[in-house]
Structure formats: C-alpha cells, structure tokens
C-alpha cells in the first residue's frame, strides 16, 4: 500500500484478528497487499463496508501492509464469496479460502 501524503500517526491497538478456525465460521476473506491502494482508502473500505471501528480497520490495514495479507472477516461460504466480490468492487485484492488452510 502507499500513502498519498503525510498523515498523523495514531496509536495502534491490539485487536484480535479472525485467522483462527471456528467451526461455525469455516471460511475467511483474505486481503493482499499491493503497491497501489492507499492506506487511507483501505482503512475507509474496512470501516465503511464491514462497519469496523477506526482502530480495528487501521490494525487490519497495517497487517495487510506489513505482513502482506490479513484475514479480515470469517463466515459461511456464501458470505465470504459475497464479501470478496464487494471488496473487488472497491478495487482491493481479495480472495476467499477455507479457514486454517494457510
């Protein structure tokens, strides 16, 4: 990801991410890092589409940026398919997979 211009550094909170296998939520959506999408925009998408708080959205965004990928939500297969297409409509690079397959 990239920055358009200097933004303030917020403190980073610990937020548990969803990359754990839960029998009721067997599928996950993974967002991958790319050099084009703005860090602010990715945070905006996570807040706006998933309804995440500013700090959770930022934590997930930084996980994508620093680790190359982040599991951003889990759910049924139908749900993660729908979320993946929605993230593509925003231009994010997203895939879905079975939880625990990585």
């Amino acid at each position: 990801m990239t920055v358009g211009f200097a933004t303030g550094t917020d403190t980073r909170e610990e937020v548990g991410t969803v990359e754990k296998t839960d029998p009721d939520q067997p599928w996950i959506v993974v967002v991958w890092n790319d050099p084009v999408n703005l860090m602010s925009y990715v945070s905006y998408v996570f807040q706006s589409y998933f309804g995440y708080t500013e700090s959770k959205a930022r934590t997930l965004m930084l996980e994508v940026h620093e680790q190359g990928r982040s599991a951003v939500i889990s759910g049924t297969r139908e749900k993660v398919e729908q979320d993946t297409v929605a993230l593509h409509s925003y231009g994010l690079w997203a895939t879905f997979e079975k939880a625990g397959s990585e």
Binding site: T84, T95, F96, E97
Partner: peptide
C-alpha cells in the same frame, strides 16, 4: 487487476 481471481 480490476477483476482479480477470487480463489488463489
């Protein structure tokens, strides 16, 4: 890139 694969 606009229409990426949804499964890796």
């Amino acid at each position: 890139r606009l229409l990426p694969d949804a499964v890796r």
